[in-house]
């Protein structure tokens, strides 16, 4: 981590990740256990996002997509689903207020941090919409597969 806010995450990684996963699990109607398939995928992906948060590496974007894919089929409005990424801001502020050296981050660092998180939210929104569109595409493709011989005869 190169930035000051990245250093804050690095030094408090376990606490921040734990709280973020907790927030993710709380999105579901009943708190989702971490050892469930959803819980595991969510935990793994949030860890990758947190560890690579400063840059849009391939693994980072794959993880953002993975989280968005999980959220896109849940009974949640998009605004609530993607609020998970905004939660990171709150968690970071709470981490600072709970003992991290307050002077370590200047306003300019916070601005950079907030801007980056907002960038990530927009990326996640793109992924979320791609996955929602994919659901509809899958419906079309499934209908076509189910009528494969009919369509073949029509086309012939």
């Amino acid at each position: 981590m190169k930035s000051a806010w990245g250093q804050l995450i690095l030094k408090n990684r376990e606490v921040i990740l734990d709280r973020w996963i907790e927030k993710g699990a709380a999105l579901f109607s009943e708190k989702m256990g971490r050892t469930t398939p959803i819980g595991e995928r969510l935990s793994e992906s949030l860890a990758i996002v947190l560890d690579g948060i400063e840059e849009n590496s391939k693994s980072f974007m794959d993880a953002v997509n993975q989280i968005s894919r999980l959220l896109a089929v849940q009974p949640l409005p998009p605004s609530k689903a993607l609020s998970l990424f905004f939660e990171l801001k709150t968690i970071l502020h709470e981490t600072v207020s709970k003992g991290y050296n307050r002077d370590a981050l200047k306003q300019v660092d916070w601005d950079a941090c907030h801007n980056r998180i907002e960038e990530i939210v927009l990326s996640a929104f793109d992924c979320y919409m791609t996955n929602r569109e994919k659901i509809y595409q899958l419906k079309v493709e499934e209908s076509q597969r189910q009528s494969f011989m009919l369509l073949r005869r029509v086309q012939a």
Binding site: R69, V73, I135, L138, E141, E142, R145, Q146
Partner: peptide, 11 residues
């Protein structure tokens, strides 16, 4: 055979 292609395509 009908449903797993969809499941695989998504996940």
């Amino acid at each position: 055979r009908a449903s797993l292609p969809t499941l695989m395509n998504y996940w």
